[in-house]
């Protein structure tokens, strides 16, 4: 069943055509990997899904086509964008913990939503940190500043912070770019656990990583969707020559 349905999405900003007539389904409870070389439009596509592109130069951007989340158009006028972003969480390439304690970092989004019940917050902290595979490392020092954690831990803290809002979908924009292989493995492992409850859309660091985590893989090139399909097929028997050239390292 498709969580997101993208129909004929064309996205332009300034005079740059970032996405060109992209259509795809993002299945629920799977890891969908969007991969491709630089400037392929991966991040732009991701940021269309939670409308984070809305704020760049409002009149210079231009979006055509439709994006449906559970069958509803997220660009419809009556959609509450803030609410949408709570449903569709996002983790970025560079983890930016708030200069608050680990605990407060995790509940930040909840507090902004107006949540005050401390039992709910505490319960949410433990659960999100467990889901992000960080709980065992920080359980005894929840009141220490989040910025003191290592890079890999910070990234999992940002993941926990997103999970605390109980989104339906988690978008990850190259979340392991600054991490060592061990931390990367931990993040990837938590993603595999998470897909039972969430829909995960993931822009990977490399083709190898894409192949490791993908249930569904989507190959973008210069803003166009070249090929999409089950991960194992895309990475072993691609139908398109350009996909094959890219996954075998002939370019990119």
């Amino acid at each position: 069943m498709a969580k997101f349905t993208v129909r004929n999405l064309t996205f332009r900003y300034d005079d740059h055509l970032a996405l060109q007539d992209v259509s795809l389904d993002i299945p629920a409870n799977e890891i969908t990997v969007i991969f491709g070389p630089a400037h392929a439009g991966k991040s732009t596509l991701l940021r269309c899904l939670n409308r984070l592109n809305d704020l760049i130069e409002t009149e210079a951007i231009h979006l055509e086509g439709q994006i449906l989340l559970d069958g509803e158009d997220i660009y419809a006028p009556r959609v509450d964008v803030t609410e949408l972003r709570r449903r569709v969480g996002m983790v970025f390439a560079v983890p930016i913990p708030l200069p608050l304690s680990i605990y407060e970092n995790v509940v930040y989004g909840l507090r902004m939503r107006g949540e005050t019940s401390s039992s709910l917050l505490t319960e949410r902290v433990e659960r999100s940190l467990r889901q992000a595979a960080l709980w065992d490392e920080v359980r005894d020092r929840l009141d220490e500043p989040g910025v003191l954690l290592s890079g890999g831990q910070q990234q999992r803290l940002c993941l926990a912070r997103t999970l605390a809002l109980e989104p339906d979908v988690i978008l990850l924009d190259n979340p392991t770019s600054g991490l060592d292989p061990l931390s990367t493995a931990k993040v990837e492992a938590s993603l595999r656990e998470l897909k039972a409850d969430y829909t995960v859309v993931f822009v990977p660091h490399s083709v190898q990583q894409a192949a490791r985590v993908a249930d569904t893989a989507v190959f973008l090139l210069n803003g166009q969707l070249i090929e999409a399909g089950p991960g194992e097929r895309i990475f072993t028997r691609p139908r398109e020559q350009r996909t094959e050239d890219y996954v075998t390292g002939r370019f990119g």
């Binding site: 969480g89 996002m90 902004m112």
Partner: peptide, 20 residues
């Protein structure tokens, strides 16, 4: 920009993002 993005992606409103 990453600061704004981070806050917005956590479901902060535009005003919460500016103010906090």
């Amino acid at each position: 920009k990453a600061h704004r993005d981070g806050a917005l992606a956590l479901g902060a409103t535009h005003w919460q993002t500016i103010w906090r």
